[in-house]
Simulated scan of single mutants.
Amino acid sequence: KALQAGTSHDLGQNFAKAFDLKFQDKDGETRFAWNTSWGVSTRLVGAVVMQHGDDNGLILPPRIAPIQVVIVPIYSSDEDRSLVLGVADKLRAELAPAVRVRVDARDQHKPGWKFAEWEQKGVPLRVEIGPKDVAKAQVMLARRDTREKQPIPIEGAAALIAARLEEIQAALFDRAKKFRDEHTFLANDYDELKAIVEKGGFALAHWDGTRETEALVKEETKATIRCIPLHGDTEPGRCVRSGNESKQRVYFARAY
């Protein structure tokens, strides 16, 4: 299904008049402002949750994650705490400010509790540091998207972590694009369009460009035009619903 987000609307001057919102133009004249509306707030948050999340919580792409890396120290004594926190703070300093990083040094929660919490919040990378890791001059790196864990050397860890964040960003994009492409199909007639949208897919079909035809398709299938490609298939054809001439194919799908 499709999720409508990032749409723009010209609201004109009605709201400006209602709230007495004015500006001074280049000629010094006072005029009511023209307003627009953009669906890029909670809808996009919902889209991220739906597209990337799993049963364990959020999975946030690194570029939009408030916290990109969380460092979780592991210790059982005051001596170990001092040792491990020293390494954690040093790594944090090496990562910041290029990476949004936090050291979770809370004593009231055990490491396993912290792991689950940060996974639920979708932090892309978790770094685990315990006394044994320090002795081996390594840290343990855990990815949120694949849940894979891998030891990496402390020396040069900041550069490796930054590179891993880029890998995660690309992997999430590629996974989402693959899912979209695997659920997009050509519809060469109306029966094919109906079958595709019934299964929850995107149908790329010819449309005659009229609102009347789109309204009929919506009434009969609950699907609407989700996107008119700017650089898509411009081959002429026949509208799958009306049979009239069509300049190009458009995407039909049901919406949430």
Score class of each variant (00 low, 15 high):
residue 246 S to H: 00
residue 147 R to S: 15
residue 50 M to A: 12
residue 197 V to H: 10
residue 91 L to A: 11
residue 94 E to H: 09
residue 82 S to G: 14
residue 33 A to T: 04
residue 237 G to A: 07
residue 247 K to G: 12
residue 47 A to N: 06
residue 135 A to P: 00
residue 117 E to S: 14
residue 164 R to K: 14
residue 46 G to A: 05
residue 160 L to E: 15
residue 19 F to A: 07
residue 96 A to P: 00
residue 220 E to Q: 07
residue 192 E to T: 02
residue 219 E to R: 05
residue 69 V to H: 13
residue 218 K to I: 01
residue 138 Q to K: 06
residue 81 R to Y: 05
residue 58 L to H: 07
residue 216 L to E: 12
residue 153 P to C: 03
residue 176 A to S: 14
residue 99 V to N: 10
residue 146 T to P: 08
residue 137 A to E: 15
residue 8 S to L: 11
residue 135 A to R: 04
residue 80 D to Q: 12
residue 134 V to H: 00
residue 221 T to G: 07
residue 26 K to D: 09
residue 64 I to V: 15
residue 126 R to K: 09
residue 172 L to E: 05
residue 128 E to N: 13
residue 166 E to T: 10
residue 179 F to W: 02
residue 18 A to H: 04
residue 139 V to A: 08
residue 191 D to A: 06
residue 156 G to T: 13
residue 65 A to E: 07
residue 213 T to N: 10
residue 16 A to S: 10
residue 85 L to Q: 09
residue 39 G to T: 15
residue 167 E to K: 09
residue 21 L to D: 06
residue 155 E to V: 14
residue 140 M to F: 12
residue 10 D to T: 06
residue 17 K to S: 10
residue 146 T to E: 08
residue 182 E to K: 08
residue 228 I to K: 12
residue 118 W to M: 14
residue 43 R to K: 09
residue 166 E to S: 10
residue 211 R to N: 08
residue 2 A to M: 06
residue 181 D to P: 01
residue 77 S to Y: 03
residue 128 E to A: 15
residue 253 A to C: 11
